[in-house]
């Protein structure tokens, strides 16, 4: 696929006898939301970790923006434009909301080794941070200490920090987790527009959101991708119904 910005080629990773990723190949094209779904333990987190750089695959490669990034660590991949959000909010809890966003903007700009000059008075950084907070609707909480945010607000801040990175690709690990119906709907609407800025690889349990948003869906079961296709194709796929959707219906 030539227009893929991010792709994995036959990624395999095992932990002892457990095959967490079994020759996983998927790609993310410009302007799309590609959802990755699968039952618990299917290896979604392991796959995300290999794409983001936290885990090294046993074999296979990760191609990002035309470059083989497999040997690169997380930091280098982030600098190349891989903007990720975490399943469990990873924020500087003692910082204010604004400081967290400014940290993102600083990461995007680089030059973080400057020891003089007030970072919270830096117009360019503040502008980027404030506009990201505005977009996710956290502006009024800019001076709140992050530890005092609600769970849902932390999820929003995760997304805001990713926005400040102005990435080429968003890698979102369950951004809706624990958001509640209303928050989930709002974020769905937001991500819908975001795909035109940068494509999104979306790992998500919220099936309403996935089927409403995704241009394509890949289904991961026991480390293998058993199907990739549009929402309708996935709904109609017998193997998927049996392996995944069926289980959920029964539950």
């Amino acid at each position: 696929m030539t227009d893929a910005i991010l792709s994995t080629r036959s990624l395999s990773k095992s932990f002892g006898a457990l095959q967490a990723s079994d020759s996983v190949s998927l790609d993310l094209r410009a302007g799309e939301i590609h959802a990755l779904i699968g039952p618990n333990g299917a290896g979604k987190s392991t796959l995300i970790a290999q794409i983001s750089g936290a885990l090294r695959p046993d074999s296979g490669s990760v191609i990002f923006d035309g470059q083989d990034v497999t040997p690169l660590p997380t930091v280098a991949r982030a600098r190349l434009g891989l903007g990720r959000t975490f399943q469990i909010s990873a924020l500087a809890m003692e910082f204010t909301v604004l400081q967290n966003a400014v940290l993102g903007a600083l990461g995007q700009r680089g030059r973080a080794f400057r020891v003089l000059g007030k970072v919270m008075r830096d117009k360019a950084l503040l502008e980027s941070a404030e506009s990201a907070l505005q977009e996710v609707g956290l502006s009024e909480f800019r001076n709140t200490v992050t530890a005092e945010l609600s769970h849902g607000q932390r999820r929003q801040l995760e997304v805001a920090v990713a926005l400040t990175l102005k990435p080429k690709v968003f890698l979102m690990d369950e951004p809706m987790a624990g958001l509640g119906a209303e928050g989930s709907q709002r974020l769905t609407g937001f991500l819908d527009g975001l795909r035109h800025r940068a494509p999104i690889l979306l790992v998500e349990h919220d099936m309403d959101a996935v089927f409403a948003l995704a241009d394509r869906i890949s289904v991961l079961v026991y480390g293998r991708i058993i199907a990739t296709g549009t929402a309708d194709e996935i709904r109609a796929n017998a193997e998927v119904r049996q392996a995944y959707l069926g289980e959920e219906d029964a539950a």
């Binding site: 930091v75 910082f95 400014v102 600083l106 020891v115 970072v119 919270m120 920090v161 990175l165």
Partner: peptide, 25 residues
């Protein structure tokens, strides 16, 4: 130093290493 760009990034490493890496520092 504490209020500089470096200070912010350094204090972030104390609080959450994964976050600092994810923003490319």
């Amino acid at each position: 130093l504490g209020k500089s760009p470096f200070g912010l990034a350094l204090q972030a490493t104390r609080q959450n290493v994964a976050r600092v890496e994810a923003v490319g520092l």
